[in-house]
Each structure stands twice: as structure tokens, then as C-alpha cells.
């Protein structure tokens, strides 16, 4: 087990990402990111700035 990890580490150190590509994690983070951006746009630009009587001073 430890030998395998050591081997992998050495491969990574050499610059190879071929063995470990967490596509699922990347996709999950992309979805989170999209939700955050959409929620922010909705909250700030539509709900907040879209309401009447914006305080300007």
C-alpha cells in the first residue's frame, strides 16, 4: 500500500496527472459554482437592486 502511494507521488512529482483525475469532484465543484453565481445574481441584481426605493444617501 505504502509502496503504491510512494510510487504515485513520485509520478505526480514528475508532472504526470494521468493516474488521478477526479472528474466527479470537478463536475460537483462546477455545479456548486454555477449555483453560487446564479444565486448571487438573483439575490443582488434582481431581489436587491430590483426593489423600489434604493437607498442612495
Amino acid at each position: 500500500m505504502s509502496r503504491t502511494e510512494t510510487a504515485r507521488t513520485s509520478v505526480d512529482d514528475a508532472g504526470g496527472d494521468d493516474e488521478f483525475d477526479p472528474v466527479g469532484t470537478l463536475a460537483l465543484i462546477a455545479v456548486y459554482f454555477a449555483i453560487l453565481v446564479l444565486a448571487w445574481v438573483y439575490i443582488y441584481y434582481i431581489e436587491f437592486l430590483g426593489r423600489d426605493l434604493v437607498v442612495v444617501g
Binding site: F48, R51, D52, L53, V54, V55, V56, G57
Partner: peptide, 21 residues
């Protein structure tokens, strides 16, 4: 239902400026 919203504290004057339509 608007953004005009402030606390009102005795001894203090809350000042907010809004534009009405």
C-alpha cells in the same frame, strides 16, 4: 417591500435618501 429600512434609535437621527417613482 423596499430597501428603505433603518433602525430608529432615541437620541440619534437616521438619515436615508431614496428616489421615488
Amino acid at each position: 417591500g423596499t430597501n428603505a429600512n433603518t433602525m430608529v434609535v432615541p437620541g440619534e437621527v437616521s438619515e436615508i435618501t431614496v428616489e421615488v417613482g
